[in-house]
Amino acid sequence: MHEWALAESIIVAALEAVDKEKLKNIKEININIGELQQIEQDIFDFALHEIVKSQNSLFKEVIFNIKTEESILECKNCKHIWRFSDMKKKLGEDESEAIHFIPEVVLVHMRCPNCGSPDFKISKGRGVTITSIKGER
């Protein structure tokens, strides 16, 4: 479960914010996850809560709000725009799993559904980001 590794990145980044903003505690962390990551939300949420248990009282009352950002792909050849979710069912199990590990390999395993070109880009919906943190100084 590499969700753990990504959850750990959230806590490490939050601790950086604690240092930078001189926070006494963290009440809320708003997280944005690209759909391409295909995160198992239950595992991710479990990992977040397990990791903060090993921290001190900084995260005692924290609430994690996790939002999945839809992944949009755009063909550079014919300008066709499509949703990853529309094409996901056409991927093989291994291809889908590979994208789960390294989202950009969607460019290896998928083609434009309109013209068949391999030259398309990920317009949105990848990566793991903290959009905001709420805490007390």
């Binding site: 950009e104 390999v105 460019l107 395993h109 990920i122 990848r126």
Partner: peptide, 22 residues
């Protein structure tokens, strides 16, 4: 392990994201 050794048409931002993820 993830590309099945197929051709990989990545752009700069993709490369950066792959390196960060790995």
């Amino acid at each position: 392990y993830f590309s099945e050794d197929k051709p990989s048409p990545f752009r700069g931002q993709d490369i950066t994201n792959i390196i960060i993820e790995l």
